[in-house]
Amino acid sequence: MADIKQLERIASQVRRDIIRMTHGAASGHPGGSLGCADFLTALYFEVMNHKADFQMEGKGEDLFFLSNGHISPVWYSVLARSGYFKVNELATFRQINSRMQGHPATHEGLPGIRVASGSLGQGMSVAIGAALAKKLNGDDQLIYVLTGDGELQEGQVWEAAMFAPHHKVDNLIVTVDWNGQQIDGSNDDVLSLGDLPGKWRAFGWDVLEMDGNDMKDILKVLDKAKARTGKGKPIAIMMKTEMGFGVDFMQGTHHWHGKAPNDELAEKALAQLEETLGDY
C-alpha cells in the first residue's frame, strides 16, 4: 500500500528543487516542471520497477523517457532524490561543465538519461523503439514516456501514434501532460488540440484520464494502466495538470513556462513549499 502522504512530501521537496534550480540558473522551465512533480514522484518512488545502478540498456527494469525535455528540472530532481546521483549536483543545473544540461542529454553521462530530448516530438518514437527492444529481448518490463500537450502539434507524434497500435506495442504507457498551456499562450489560442482523448482512441490506443496533481488518482490510474498492458494495445493517459502547480502565482498560466523566478519571487514560492527531505 502506497504511503500517499510520504509521496506528497517528496513531491513538495521536488518542487522546492525546481524553484531553487531555475532560480540558481536564472533560466529554465519551472511551469511544466511543477505541474509534473506529482506524476514523476509517483513513477520513481512507487510505480516503476527501476534499478538503482544505471545501465543504458535497462534490461529487466521499467524505463522512463521524457519527450518534453524542457521540464528537465523535475526529472533531475526526482532522479537525484531517488538515488541516481548526489542531490548536491542539482546546484550545477545549466552551469558550464555540468552533467545537468538545459535539456536532458546522454553526452555528459548523467545517470538516468537514455536519450537527449528537447527538440520536441521525438520521445514517443524513441520509447516505442525501446519497447520493441524489450519484446525482442524477452523482457516483460514496461516503457513509460511523458510528452507535453503543445508538443502534440509536432507531426512525428502522430506518426508514432499510428505505429504503436498497428504493431501492438502493448508494453508502452504514454502520458500526455495536458496542462493546456504552451509558450505563446493556451493550446486553444496557439493551435487547438481538439478532442484529445478522442484523437488517441481514433488512432487505436487504450485511453485513460488522470488528475496529475492528485497523488491518489495518479496511483490509481497508473495501476489501472499497468494492468491493461500486454493486451494488444498501447496505453495513453491524458493527464490533466496545472502548469506551475504548488506555487500560487505560477499556477494555471503560461507565463512561467520558460521563465525563472528572481530572488524575491523564489523566496515567495519557497515559502509555499515545505522542505521535507532537506534542500541541496
Binding site: 535497462g58 534490461k59 523503439g129 520493441l132 527492444a133 525482442l136 512525428q156 506518426e159
Partner: peptide
C-alpha cells in the same frame, strides 16, 4: 521477420524508433 519493422511513410518516426531500439542493445 521478427527483426524487421515496417514503419510506413514516416521517416521521422523511423529514426526515433531506431534510437530506442539501439538503447535496448539492438543494432538498427
Amino acid at each position: 521477420p521478427e527483426r524487421f519493422f515496417q514503419v510506413g511513410v514516416a521517416e521521422a518516426n523511423m529514426m526515433g524508433i531506431a534510437a530506442g531500439l539501439a538503447t535496448g542493445g539492438k543494432i538498427p
